[in-house]
Write a protein that binds this DNA or RNA. Sequence first.
DNA 1: ATGGCCGGCGCAGCCGGA
Length: 259
Amino acid sequence: MQIATWNINGVKARIETLLAWLKEAGPDIVCLQEIKSVDDQFPRLEIESAGYHVETHGQKGFNGVAILSRTRPDDVLRGLPGDPADEQARFMEAVFSTRRGAVRVASLYLPNGNPPGTEKYPYKLSWMKRLERFAAERLALEEPTVLAGDYNVIPEPRDAKNPAAWTGDALFQPESRDAFRAIEYLGYLDAVRAVTDEQVFTFWDYQAGAWQKNNGIRIDHVLLSPEAAGRMRAARIDSHVRGWEKPSDHVPVIVDLDL
DNA sequence: ATGGCCGGCGCAGCCGGA
């Protein structure tokens, strides 16, 4: 079972690119972030025609997440628990039946948090604390759980082409990195880091020829509970998609689980 | 990563992104 995450940067502007990648890669489940669409305007018909069920959690203008899947989920949760006042559409979870039992898949779009010194940064850190609590609760179920998305965290210096340039940025602040590591230390595996020690990226800015210079960062991650990690066959980043027409600035990250 | 962009909203230019 192939499970992917991709910050699509506007699903309506990106529908042709998305359909081309679905056809090429044929994933079973796809977590999308930054759909920038309300639920009613999501390009549902095109994606259903490609053979996918669609569940969305959108809002007007920005943010928004979705989960596409070959089979219909048994259950869907919208919104990250822990703060009823949080209006931003950044999290959803779907539960699927497999021949080996249930798998839980979350699509998350963690706040950017820039610039530190504004209210955006504590919002990021409190959101991460809520995510840690959610991750701990799911861990207690002792079932395969996949936490996939745009974490907006550069975990280590080797996850940036030019780490010095990110000093002071919310994506690379010690508190952000600590909060990411705290979730790993609960018992979750960073799937891509488990399969390679190479410098690999998932995001290249549109500006200043970042893609051509390979000036990227690794901020899109798939974290696996022990029950999912034990079933991992492979993990990869589809970097070539960044070179397509009308690309997102992020590329898909895919894990293959024996489920 | 500091020169260079992009999508949404809505019809001009600003907001948000990373």
